[in-house]
Nucleic acid binder design. Sequence first.
DNA 1: ATGATTTTGTGACATTTGTCAAATGAAATC
DNA 2: GATTTCATTTGACAAATGTCACAAAATCAT
Lengths: 189, 189
Amino acid sequence: MDILFKTFIDYFSTNYPLTDHTKAEICSHLSILNLDKKHILVKENQRHDFAYFVIKGAVRSYYLKDGIEVNTWFALENDMVGSLQNFQDNPSRETMELLEISTLISINLKQIKPLMFSNIQIAHFINAIIIEYALFLEDKIFFSQMMNSIDKYQILLEREPQLFQRVPLTYIASFLGISRETLSRLRAK
Amino acid sequence: MDILFKTFIDYFSTNYPLTDHTKAEICSHLSILNLDKKHILVKENQRHDFAYFVIKGAVRSYYLKDGIEVNTWFALENDMVGSLQNFQDNPSRETMELLEISTLISINLKQIKPLMFSNIQIAHFINAIIIEYALFLEDKIFFSQMMNSIDKYQILLEREPQLFQRVPLTYIASFLGISRETLSRLRAK
DNA sequence: ATGATTTTGTGACATTTGTCAAATGAAATC
DNA sequence: GATTTCATTTGACAAATGTCACAAAATCAT
């Protein structure tokens, strides 16, 4: 088994160990992708059969509101990229674009999903991913409701310092819901 | 089986039908509660073994930031009340309080959770709840990132008109992240 | 390397929102 | 039903943020 696949599978099977057979079955629906900066993984309003796991690189998600890009998140190493909209076979609400040359694992949702019903280990594996994702969402909401933008900026700086080295401030300002000028002034202090 | 339990169970087992035996097993960890206005279901920073499903009534969630209540959501009929923090046995980040005399189903998480590993139907049942919850969270984030507060107000008014009849505007303003005065002025138009 | 493009920073001003204070309206309690 | 409490509205002003314009700095592509 590819060492990168192993990283991914182990990452989500700490609570519920998988047999080698199940691991192999999961692997058969994974691929490794090496993609260039600015590559579009998922397009807004389109259905998409894959989710991704970032081995190396950075991804941003955004959607268009009145013609303006609203950035919604940035994924770095060991983060999942995708949404439950994809998993539920709904069109994506966001575009996801690489910010750097990246190495990703792609997960074929269309193929893996039906296995949930025949292999209970796979069911638990997928649940672990969904629970982690939902915890991440709860966190994101909690964070975003701390209204004061100075606080938001400082918390983001504490939690995800790498973002500020790897993601343009314009995108971060957009994510924080403030103009780039305001962010620039906050940083001046 | 109590008709109210049936409502709840059917609500989350449309994709994956349950045998009568499993339904009975789930029921044995459910109770019906009739509680008064202002009753506190869950306290901020405390662990809690239960989640709830609203049969009739209204619940608000809030946390304290610098001594001020920040309202995070309002649950009405057929909504779940709880968080993954509870499910994961972490302390709750929010207080949940009844806004009306309410009838709720309580779900004993501590008892039901281990059954996920012995009964695959229960695993799928719980997953259905978590997926619905995660979709709800995705929606909430998407909504909250539409920054303009007039838009937020109008979308909330379209989607959840009942809230404005049943929840004080002070709480709604707090949820929207604006002062009650600003909300009042938005409404004047 | 160098010119072009993108990103970031700064100033001036308009707009929005928050804050404080007070008045009105509605609802709960006795 | 009267009284108290709570919720909502309105006005005046201060503070924060957005917008526009432009300059400086960094990055990219040839």
